[in-house]
Design a protein around this nucleic acid. Structure first.
Length: 158
DNA sequence: GCCAACGTTGGC
DNA sequence: GCCAACGTTGGC
């Protein structure tokens, strides 16, 4: 079972929004970066667990955990002219070059683990999230990092 | 709003 | 294939 981290801007789609969705489940549309797409397409497996991370917000933080419930399938929003995720090149091909997965929120952090806390915690120095210039919206998380952050967050069932 | 870092685009 | 220009990300 692999562990991942996915970034989202809470103004666009927050962890609470995922929890509020039917069955705590939603597709994860709009990823428009090839490296991130390839992780979803090639490596995301049903049952993999994912940190949901709030970025571009006052207090960037890991908010909780979700589980992959459907593996990669085409992201049709790339073909939808009215979508903010419309992609000209996909539309031209008539085939979406982007994929998405479905995730279900499973655990909420009583104490969201802030970027500052991660930065200040011994043993988490090597996390990709802290790497200079690291902007990938989907990234793998090492097990030892995963375990530490879960403890810090005091995860409870959603 | 600033800006460093990185990805993408397009002319050659 | 190179690389300058441009766009985006995301913390601060």
């Amino acid at each position: 079972m692999k562990h991942w981290l996915m970034k989202t801007e809470p103004d666009v789609f927050s962890f609470d929004a995922l929890v509020a969705a039917a069955n705590h489940t939603s597709c994860w549309e709009g990823v428009r970066n090839y490296q991130a797409r390839n992780f979803m397409r090639d490596e995301f497996k049903k049952g993999d667990e994912v940190f949901i991370y709030h970025s571009s917000t006052e207090v960037p933080a890991v908010m909780g955990i979700a589980q992959v419930v459907r593996e990669a399938y085409p992201d049709a929003s790339a073909l939808d002219k009215k979508s903010e995720y419309f992609d000209e090149k996909s539309a031209k091909d008539g085939v979406s070059r982007w994929v998405m997965v479905d995730v279900r929120a499973t655990l909420r952090f009583k104490k969201p683990v802030t970027l500052a806390a991660i930065r200040a915690t011994k043993g988490l120095e090597e996390m990709l999230l802290l790497k200079r210039g690291q902007r990938l919206s989907i990234q793998p998380v090492a097990d030892k990092h995963w375990d530490k952050i879960v403890k810090m967050g005091e995860a409870v069932k959603v």
